[in-house]
């Protein structure tokens, strides 16, 4: 698939729809982390609708599938509508998020389409490295994608895995960092400054690329490049994003992580969202 105007329009419409659906979920389940689930919308859309990820929603254990680990589990409410739309589970489930006996909680765990247990930060990359080793051993050409938050990089276990991945030349690893520059209580630069982030990965022998994580074309081209990459290094895509993207009440609010919106606010946003 080439990136052209048609694909761009298609992905743009999908992103708008995902934001709308995410807000609707938040309306019935205010416990969900809305702002964190809005910074990664374009990442999910390009992966699932841009032909990047190989998946089979009717056979979730298909051996040749790309593995996708969502390490920032709390920020994956926006993935629920996508997975339902693609047939991983029934769309009816979206109406019951956080309700009694629902499969979908505020953090995804045992849900078709999710490879691992999520919710505690700093585990995804290490588990992904284990999967990457396994795929190489099984001679399966699929990739292991991991979505991590930037705040998550504070966890020491992530750096154990960063060292491991490059030492073992795990070139089937694609780490995507949703770099929204905030964690729960404020800006990363004020808490534990991660910059210069790309340089850090480079000195750990990772191939890297920094892009605007809301720009469909940049995401599409970078991820396609990584999929075909022959550099024998693990790859990191630092996607600069904005927490709460698309909702002015959340954007630039340092405490947006824990902010819930009221029902009437959500109704108004849904009318204005473009």
């Amino acid at each position: 698939m080439r990136f052209n105007t048609d694909l761009f329009e298609f992905l743009k419409q999908k992103a708008l729809w995902v934001r709308q659906e995410t807000l609707k979920i938040h309306k019935i389940a205010p416990e969900t982390r809305l702002a964190s689930s809005l910074s990664d919308v374009e990442i999910f859309v390009v992966l699932y609708y841009g032909g990047i990820l190989n998946f089979n929603s009717k056979d979730i254990h298909w051996q040749e599938r790309d593995r996708f680990i969502i390490s920032k589990g709390h920020g994956a409410i926006s993935l629920y509508p996508i997975l339902a739309n693609l047939g991983f589970f029934s769309k009816e489930e979206l109406k019951n998020v956080c309700k009694e006996d629902s499969m979908l909680g505020s953090i995804p765990d045992n849900i078709p389409g999710f490879e691992t247990i999520n919710g505690s930060l700093g585990h995804g990359l290490g588990v992904g490295c284990g999967m990457a080793l396994a795929l190489k051993r099984k001679k399966i050409k699929a990739k292991v994608f991991i979505l991590s938050g930037d705040g998550e990089l504070n966890e020491g276990s992530v750096w154990e895995a960063i060292m491991f991945a490059s030492h073992h030349k795990l070139d089937n690893i694609i780490l995507i960092i949703d770099n929204n520059k905030m964690s729960m209580l404020g800006y990363q630069k004020d808490i534990l400054d991660l910059e210069p982030l790309e340089e850090k990965f480079n000195v750990f022998n990772w191939e890297s690329k920094v892009i605007n994580g809301h720009d469909m074309e940049e995401l599409y081209l970078a991820l396609n490049h990584f999929k075909k990459n022959k550099s024998k290094q693990p790859m990191v895509l630092i996607a600069n994003t904005q927490k709460g993207k698309g909702v002015s009440q959340l954007e630039n609010d340092p405490l947006c992580h824990i902010k819930s919106l009221k029902e009437d606010e959500i109704d108004n946003i849904l009318k204005e969202l473009k």
Binding site: E115, H123, V127, G128, G130, A134, L135, A161
Partner: peptide
């Protein structure tokens, strides 16, 4: 050599790597 790995002094990663391998059936 291909099925023994010294992961380094990194117990957290030891468990995470083991998990990834086990989820793939090893």
């Amino acid at each position: 050599k291909d099925r023994f790995i010294n992961v380094g002094i990194a117990e957290q990663n030891l468990i995470n790597l083991s998990t990834g391998l086990a989820l793939e059936g090893f």
